[in-house]
Design a protein around this nucleic acid. Structure first.
Lengths: 200, 200, 200, 200
DNA sequence: TATGAATGAGTGTTCATTCAT
DNA sequence: AATGAATGAACACTCATTCAT
């Protein structure tokens, strides 16, 4: 029953994760049936329980899988530069770019995961904090190097930055007729925050 | 059967709305039973259906009621000043203050309402846009008066500001042991945005 | 609580009985709400319980009231003649005539009352048997006078006659576009039964 | 989800139909719970919904299944003779015989199905008319061959015949202590109608 | 491994009935 | 007598999960 690396890497596991992402994004977690996911993944209902403990576990797995991928992609990009200001810009651009190229995943992460504070507290913590700490590290580094004002509290502001970026992403994902590009949104955010943070 | 102003103003209606807010905040909308709300409101299950069409309607009503109150409170405060920079500061402080004094309501608005993009699109639209437009009006006014940079796109940035404020509020509400005050959060946000927006 | 003659004769009692007859005829007993009847009768829901013990009692009362009226009308007509053959003809014509002029009542008696064999057995017995015995009396009288064959068993045949008449009535009541008159139906039934019963 | 021939022929489908027939006959459709049927059929509540769309569909299915069987049995018997008078006799005898050997089914068809004129009009139409048309065909054939009087209107009289037979059947089914045999009832009906119809 | 028929606990909603006014 | 707001028992139906094949 325990999920091992073999299962996680397997074909069916990925097929189900992707099907679930599409279904949850479209109908919402609570309005999606396990059998909907099974049909979308072209497997039998019971098969899902060979790879996931239950419906909740499916949601959690999407979350963990995606956050790992997001985090890895972001860390790779950030390594390209050593300037905190440039890093912050890269972070913002890449986050929105990832949202654009993984809209279903983004929607599940942003909309569905929040539906239960219980869930947020119990499961989502670690991976999410990991991601947030990327932001606070940039901030701390910037303050240390004198690029950002020392009056900034990275512990508080990291969340504000994340919220701003995430909300833009959410708006963009839910918008049917896209009124602006993720690129334009990224530019506005960069301007806003870099000006807002930089030392005089 | 139609809900009229009389019902909305009635004792029971308010009692049920408040009970539902508490219950939904604690357990989440989908994990709350109508009978939980009834018990909390000290009425019979059936009584709820005298005032609300169904469980969804209860959620929507909480949303509309609260947004109206929030919006009204904010507009009153903003009228106190004519300086856009001061207005923005007042807005941020008041929003976080309202979240602090109405934690259950804030949690339902932030967490539960988002669970369904369908809901977000279909019902939440108007009242929410009304609230967002308060922000963009401050921005536009500031740009016009030369306080804020003209390169700011209020249409995009309003959402970023809202996201930052809202996310801070969400973190604060969900935190069991409050690690910082809403006041401190407001100050950080003000510094960040006022610096980030102001013309050189 | 006991229903007395005063109540039965009262305005409201009749108003409710008539409203219930219309509502039950249109929607069926189980698909009609007490509040539907109340609205139709232009009284409050609770008022119905001042005149009737419960919803079932309403149905039973319609039945008893109507059967009394039907029976009385039929007995009056039968007294006009002393010839069993003529009596039978009069009975058939009058029954169908009454159905035509009291379609809602007829429909409730025919369709709704039958829905519960429990009801049929427990409540409907007496008044219904009274009505059936009118037929068997005609038959017995006819056999005695030599108009009808002695091989006829009135105990069995009364029910067959009633069934034939009642079924025609039912068809006619439920037919939206009336394809024949009750008069035509009555004539066919008379011909059928008088020929079928008469002694050679 | 769609009910196909496979499901209809399956063990469980038949088991449920038969259980529902017994339960509905005993307690009436509206007083029977789906869980009563499930218990009687020795399946879980949910299993019923794998074979039937809802409770109404269960009733309709009993009707259609039974009417098909009844009609087929009757047509087979009628083919045995070419004399309309004999055919009519055979029809009457067989109908009552079938009622005797399928009392539960007969009771559901006669009592429960009629409770809703909506049902009668919407669903029962076709199969029932098919059955009635068997009678009118006998009548028409008899008139053509000169056995029955030409003044008979088969369109009207078929319903009278059916009503008489059906009512006798109903009385007999609902009678706890059977006061006469179906055989005796059939004989009386034959005498009545054959005399009533035959040409001089 | 994979299936999908079967399960049965769980819940939103209805509506007959009551009773304070 | 009359009202109609409030009640809460009752029930059809859903769907996550299991397990025999």
């Amino acid at each position: 029953m325990a999920l091992n690396a073999q299962k996680i890497g397997s074909d069916k596991y990925q097929k189900i994760i992707q099907a679930a992402t599409r279904v949850f994004a479209e109908k919402g977690f609570y309005n999606s049936k396990v059998s909907d996911v099974a049909r979308e993944a072209q497997v039998a209902d019971g098969t899902i329980y060979l790879y996931f403990k239950n419906k909740d576990d499916l949601l959690i797995s999407i979350f963990e899988e995606s956050m790992d991928n997001f985090t890895a992609a972001v860390l790779t990009r950030l390594a390209e530069s050593s300037d905190p200001v440039e890093k912050l810009g890269n972070f913002i651009h890449l986050h929105l770019e990832l949202v654009r190229t993984h809209q279903d995943t983004a929607q599940v992460l942003q909309v569905e995961l929040r539906q239960s504070s219980k869930f947020m507290k119990e499961y989502a913590g670690t991976k999410f904090k990991e991601y947030l700490s990327i932001i606070s590290q940039i901030l701390e580094e910037g303050i240390e190097k004198g690029c950002f004002r020392a009056s900034i509290n990275p512990f508080i502001v990291k969340r504000a930055l994340f919220g701003a970026i995430d909300e833009m992403a959410l708006e963009w994902v839910l918008m049917k007729r896209k009124k602006y590009t993720t690129e334009a949104a990224a530019k506005q955010l960069c301007e806003l925050f870099i000006e807002g943070l930089k030392a005089e």
